[in-house]
Simulated scan of single mutants.
Amino acid sequence: MIDSKTDQVAEILKTIGHPNRMRIVLALAGQSHMRVATLQEQLQIEPSLLSHHLTKLKDTGILASKRQGKDINYSLLDAALPLALKALL
């Protein structure tokens, strides 16, 4: 029987396995947060496609979002990626 932690790690790895989502995670690494507009400008990803990827990352528990006025800021959740990396070791 596969435990839920293994399933969670597999889902995280599957999610960040997409090249654009990996680029988003790497752009946010080391940042406290980043505006959607800044991510779009930096990564040159179409706004609708970026929104899709950000939603997938958020739904998987990799990102958190916070609205500030008209802006939405995204940040990496501390627990998601270390859990996935530790499980690989």
Results as ranks from 00 to 15, higher is better:
A79V: 06
A87W: 12
L54M: 06
G61V: 02
K14M: 14
L88M: 14
P19F: 09
R23G: 00
R35Y: 07
I24M: 04
L57I: 01
G30V: 00
V9M: 04
D3W: 06
T60Q: 10
K70E: 10
T6P: 00
L43A: 03
L39T: 03
I2D: 11
Q42R: 15
K70M: 01
N73I: 08
D3L: 04
A87I: 00
A10C: 07
Q44M: 10
T38Q: 13
Q40H: 07
D59K: 12
I62H: 07
S32C: 06
H53P: 00
A29K: 11
L26T: 07
D7S: 09
T38C: 02
T6E: 14
K58Y: 06
R21V: 05
I24T: 03
L81W: 01
L43Y: 06
H18G: 05
P82H: 11
L83I: 09
L43Q: 03
S32T: 11
K14S: 15
K86V: 02
K70N: 10
A29P: 00
H53W: 05
A79F: 12
E46I: 06
S32V: 10
G30L: 04
K86R: 13
P82I: 02
K56L: 14
G69D: 05
Q44Y: 03
L28H: 06
I62Y: 08
R21T: 03
N73G: 02
I72V: 15
L57T: 00
S65N: 09
I2L: 15
L77F: 01
R67P: 00
D59Y: 02
L83D: 09
Q42I: 01
T60E: 07
I2A: 13
L49K: 12
L26D: 06
K14H: 12
S65Q: 13
L26M: 15
A10D: 10
D71R: 05
L50Y: 06
G30T: 01
E11W: 08
R67G: 05
L39W: 07
S51T: 10
V36L: 08
D78T: 08
A29M: 13
A84Q: 02
L83W: 01
I45S: 08
L49T: 15
H33F: 14
A10Q: 13
T38E: 13
L76E: 06
I62C: 05
A37M: 07
